[in-house]
Amino acid sequence: MVYRVLKKSAHAVVVAIALDLKEYKNKVIKIHLGQKIAATSTIVGSILFIMIFPVYHSIGLQVLIALNVIDLISAIFIKTEKKTKLYTDRVSEAIMFSVAGFPWFILTAINYILAMLRITTYKKTPIIPLRFIFLLFLILQE
């Protein structure tokens, strides 16, 4: 009788630990306000850019410059949490370059593959700085 109760309670403890571990694995990555602003501005900036650039080239270019400055500031001053930055950057690039046409579309897909590689196997996989290259391309074209 005692043996059965002990066995049941031990089983309950093991199940409880397993559930705790499962909950622990699903925890939210907390980032501070500066990081949130940097991540939000990349997505909002990319939406603004695709809406403004076809009509007002110069204002669109300024939005793109601002996006690159935010990238630079967040890389130097704000120690951005890597996974959040990785995700928001990929989504914002996909929004921006889905409209841009042929070579940029391929580069965005390559960046997605590189991001997955960084998450899975090679932690130091370089990501192509597409927004900066696009800015240089537009300035050279103008």
Partner: peptide, 11 residues
């Protein structure tokens, strides 16, 4: 399935 973290950027 590579990472189970939940990301949140809500201001």
């Amino acid at each position: 399935p590579f990472s189970n973290h939940i990301l949140s950027i809500r201001l």
